[in-house]
Amino acid sequence: MKLQADLFPYPVLSSVTDDYIGSSFSTKWREKKVSSDQLNLEVAFTLDDSGLRNLIKNKRAVYAVHVEGISSSYRKLFPVEGNKDKIIISIDPSEVGGDIEMNMVIMACKEIGSYQNKNFNPEFYDSDYKVASLDKGDILAFCPYEKLTLGVSNKDKPSVESMMRVSATKGKFMVVDTDGDVIYIRLPEQTHKLYKLLSKSSKGQEQLLMVTIVLPALSHVISEVQRGEDFEDKEWYSALQDKLKKLNYGEESFMQEDAMKIAQVLLGCPLDNAFEMFYNERGEFDEGKN
């Protein structure tokens, strides 16, 4: 789950919100493989806020790590016991199956009446502002969530090329189906038959099909991701994120770049020589004459 600072009806301490001034909450974590069926997540919490620290000391709040499978049913909450500021979580990767999300939080572990903190941002909260009451489980501080590939998937992680398939549909129009773990480009039946023949006939024709079929489909998918559609539980999305990272696309640069350009980069710029290759195979291209 992605915690959103603006949903909280009370001040919450996080690097993504300025409800607090002069306070901070951060975590460091690492994974350590112990055996084939045990992976340890070692998480250390760093808190700079006396008010929250007192709540933890008085056992009214606690550090915790929430682990959730993105496309599996795995879900567990690991509160930190005692006054410790670190925890080692043991997970059997075979129980998890795929990517996980981790949220590191400080939460109330019992009802807290009338919570006040001198570090509430005076721009938003008066000096006598109090949170009337907090229930058990209410989040008081959080770090932006982390994603980790932990478990054993049933399949190899798809590459950008392998995350797309071309198949047939009885419909009249080409459709890009993003609902599964693989993106399906569905072509009308007769078109699909011809596609299969052409894709096997020559390298030039195969490259042209990449440009005319795969490239616009991938561009469409990237546009949907940029529009904010939620594909986090899809394996193709995970492969796409990996590839974008390797190409040094950060979140900002990805959102600002043209989707068609990103698609071309992901596919290795197929336009560069697709048409030349096609015409060369037909013996019709001569750079000097044309």
Binding site: L3, P9, K76, L77, M107, D135, G137, D138, I139
Partner: peptide
């Protein structure tokens, strides 16, 4: 509720 509270504690 889960946007602000750890549901798993319920």
């Amino acid at each position: 509720v889960g946007g602000v509270r750890m549901l798993d504690l319920l």
